[in-house]
């Protein structure tokens, strides 16, 4: 009921009360007093309603506050650990790649170093400038060279695979960084809500976002980070194989 109509009703009942008292009509005066009390109670209930609503809003805002303190207490340190893990992983990947490259450079250098004099001797042989004894030595060197280059080639090949595999850090760290970005975004949204709330009124829809991510479907969580992700995480491929074989795989 609107404010002015409550005021009008007060005025009307008050006039009635005065008129009744002046006329000496006690029953009518009692009725007017009852009416005044009733109006008074209605206003009280309305105020109580408003108080309840404010309390409700405050509780909702408090829930947002706990989400923020949750982020501050556990998720920010958690994100810091994740980012540190990213540094460790990228460092390891860089070293793996560099080690494979350095080892390959040494091996290729050796092969090139052996090939150069061999080529000169081979040219002399083709030009018929080589004595039989020298040719025997060349044949032995050639044997050794072919064997060594096959062996070195194999090692360079596995170094290349090693360097190739080391690049998996980009995928794994990318997934971890993406997760931290999501957290930063959530912090931003919560701060905006907090500013909105302390500046005045909180919007109904904002409270709902605190309850997201609650449906039952199985979710992707990205790579597990040692020391951060506790719980039921497998430790490597052997664990996966054991688990799957226990399921009849």
């Amino acid at each position: 009921m609107a404010e002015e109509s409550a005021g009008d009703r007060y005025l009307e009942s008050a006039r009635m009360l005065v008129q009744s008292l002046e006329a000496g009509d006690e029953m009518a005066a009692d009725k007017a007093i009852d009416e005044l009390t009733h109006i008074r109670e209605t206003v009280l209930f309305k105020e109580l309603g408003m108080l309840t609503r404010e309390l409700h809003e405050s509780i909702k805002a408090f829930r947002l506050d706990t989400r923020l303190s949750d982020i501050a207490e556990s998720e920010i340190p958690d994100a810091r650990d994740r980012l540190n893990y990213v540094i460790t992983m990228t460092e390891q990947a860089a070293h793996r790649t560099l080690t494979a490259i350095e080892d390959s450079i040494n091996r290729v250098d050796v092969v090139i170093g052996k090939a150069q004099p061999m080529r000169e001797n081979w040219q002399r042989f083709r030009n018929r400038e080589m004595a039989v004894d020298e040719f025997r030595v060349l044949c032995r060197d050639l044997d050794e060279f072919l064997e060594a280059s096959a062996e070195e080639g194999g090692k360079v090949q596995s170094n290349l695979t090693e360097a190739l595999m080391a690049q998996d850090y980009q995928d794994l760290t990318g997934q971890i960084i993406r997760r931290v970005i999501n957290l930063v975004q959530e912090v931003e949204e919560n701060l905006v809500q907090l500013v909105r709330f302390s500046g005045g009124r909180i919007l109904e829809e904002n409270a709902a976002s605190a309850d997201k991510n609650k449906d039952g479907a199985i979710k992707a969580e990205g790579p597990s980070v040692p020391g951060v992700d506790k719980g039921d995480v497998v430790q490597g491929q052997d664990d996966v194989d054991d688990l799957l074989s226990s399921l009849g795989f």
């Binding site: 995928d171 794994l172 997934q175 199985i218 992707a220 969580e221 990205g222 790579p223 597990s224 719980g231 039921d232 995480v233 497998v234 996966v240 688990l243 799957l244 399921l247």
Partner: peptide
């Protein structure tokens, strides 16, 4: 990279 047991199951 998903390594939770429940995910593998």
């Amino acid at each position: 990279a998903e390594a939770k047991r429940e995910q593998i199951v």
